[in-house]
Write a protein that binds this DNA or RNA. Structure first.
Lengths: 352, 352
DNA sequence: CAAATTTCCGTGCACGTTCACGGAAATTAA
DNA sequence: TTAATTTCCGTGAACGTGCACGGAAATTTG
């Protein structure tokens, strides 16, 4: 463990180029006031000596107050987005060592106006970087446009828009996850005539359904591999809790054969509860996301498989990437980071 | 993005405690030569002011040449341990920004003497930290003992020993993985009378078999859930390539029913090749690890499921953790980091 | 050619730690 | 009491970069 390592400093470069360190610094940061000739000499010297700046000295000398703001939907304890917040808080602890603060800003995912307001609050704060889980396309577009103009880098999580200004994306491939869901539901089994897709979501017009692509992947797999199986959608209003039983009774009541059920959002535990209450037998349920309630259902056999992404880890990764970018400047990161699709069953879920 | 953030410096502490910064520094690093009274005053001042040292200044002022050495088995391109090396190289790139160098040191995993030599080479280098994939228990024990005495922290990967000096562990839970393997092989299917466990490994005495616990988990699941199914071991010498066909012919040749096959190390592609050559039909093969050859077999249906761990990510995590520890000093890390057991099938393997 | 302006560049302090050095204060020995 | 130790502590120079300041050199203007 000897001393020193990269001896070549800004001073060495200055010496080699026959200028002062001030000039080298100006070249390094592209802030002008340097003649062509000096610039070339400095650039050549940097190249020859293999100089790369000492990040510690650099960070020490420019102690900016850095703030990362994360814009995600509101959540209650145990809900899907609380996992994201857990990741954010974890990341906050880590990057605080580097002098970076992290804040969570939430909005009502069913209210575009609330999203808009959260956006403008963030723009007022003028943070060093932003992480956003977008729900409203057009609002998001104008938001990230303003961020770009203010020179604030941003990262998408959960889903992303078809534009090109983002620094990185962390999320699942929704279509593939639906395809996988269908495979897991059916592979190696005798599939009943009807498969039920339970859809518990507020059905407001104009909202882009984040699970639409997932449903598409599911349908494609089924129509390709089981063209004769009927896919029956069961729509349920999440606000009307007593409608769950009646709607599911109506859907399942008639037949007594095996029931194959899938759900595309994180609320499969509601179906599991129904199964528990009604003592349903001979069923196969595949759902998404590792909420506590879903895990409980997995453990006692009311759900067979959960397809999960590590939402918390994704946010840790997003915050860490953004921090790296903020501190180290260049993008060592991948731009698109697709979350792993984890397959959880009763056997491996305790080790997730 | 205003300036400055944590104004309280070592000087403020010194002022508040009525001593000099030198004394504060001595207290901070526990290097003695401080009276009880001064020590208490400093400690109280730190507490009151909520002082925490600026890591950049700290790192700048103590430019040690830090080296992490990683001790893993030798490998050829595409083999299991080359994935680990890939992770090491990736991590090396990341942590080089922090002035930390990373080296891979390899040994012959079938030759204890080679392992011993690699250990003493590392001890000579006196690196700042070590990551070790242990294969020989007793040699490893004396190795880590010497590391401890030299004050060199070490991290286990892949497997760990029953001792208490390690900084962290990154690896799979072997027993659980065998249990999961059995579940995946059988769940929801009609299981044949005989299940084949193909064991391709050099069978030298005195070597601890890293897959022994995995096999135990598998056997426990089977004897619990399918007590009547016979588990037939098929031993094959990896050096004698032509023995593969004859041994497997002997094992499978007689019956014509469905064949259930598992392997506990990463060489399931050898069985897949046999299946391809012999055009075996009606089989279910479950194996481990995402080698390129295994993935190819998964893609064209010669293997149904692979249970995988992200060996590369694990090593990235291990190197990063060790770097954090080396640079930041305290252990923000978890001690035991159990790798996720990923279930790969033909449907999701391309997105791994 | 001198003065005014612009372009360019060197100097030196600041950032907050680490640590060697030397010396003051306290303790012990003579 | 003085000298010799030992214990304890303050001082100040690094570490390498960022940036403000002021001034020299080059250019333009009158």
């Amino acid at each position: 463990m000897s001393k020193k390592q990269n001896n070549v400093t800004i001073n060495d470069v200055a010496l080699a180029a026959g200028v002062s360190k001030g000039t080298v610094d100006r070249v390094l940061h592209d802030r002008g006031e340097v003649s062509r000739k000096s610039r070339d000499k400095v650039l050549r010297a940097i190249e020859e000596l293999g100089f790369s700046p000492n990040i510690y000295a650099s960070l020490l000398a420019s102690p900016k107050d850095r703030l990362i703001q994360c814009l995600i939907p509101e959540f209650s304890e145990g809900e899907f987005w609380s996992l994201a917040d857990k990741g954010i808080r974890e990341a906050a602890k880590i990057v605080s060592r580097y002098g970076v603060r992290v804040e969570t800003v939430t909005y009502d995912q069913y209210d575009a106006e609330s999203f808009r307001k959260a956006c403008s609050r963030i723009l007022e704060c003028a943070p060093s970087g932003v992480i956003v889980a977008p729900m409203f396309g057009s609002v998001t577009l104008s938001f990230v446009k303003e961020l770009s103009e203010a020179g604030i880098p941003y990262i998408y999580v959960d889903s992303k828009l078809e534009e090109d200004g983002y620094l990185a994306y962390f999320g699942m491939q929704m279509y593939r996850s639906g395809y996988l869901c269908a495979h897991i539901l059916t592979d190696g089994r005798s599939v009943p005539d009807t498969v039920h897709v339970v859809r518990i979501a507020r059905d407001k017009a104009g909202l882009s359904d984040p699970t639409a692509m997932r449903r598409a992947g599911f349908m494609d797999y089924m129509s390709c591999n089981f063209p004769d199986v009927r896919i029956e959608n069961v729509f349920i209003d999440p606000n009307d809790s007593c409608s769950i039983d009646s709607r599911l009774d109506a859907a399942f009541g008639s037949s007594s054969g095996p029931k194959f059920i899938v759900m595309f959002n994180s609320r499969v535990h509601l179906v599991a509860d129904y199964i528990g209450r009604r003592r349903v037998r001979d069923f196969r349920v595949v759902g998404f996301d590792v909420l506590e309630k879903n895990l409980a259902a997995l453990r006692d056999g009311r759900v067979q498989v959960l397809i999960a992404q590590h939402m918390d880890k994704q946010l840790v990764a997003a915050v860490s990437s953004l921090t790296d970018y903020l501190l180290l400047g260049d993008k060592v990161m991948n731009r698109d980071n697709y979350a792993q699709m984890d397959i959880l069953n009763i056997c491996n879920c305790d080790y997730y």
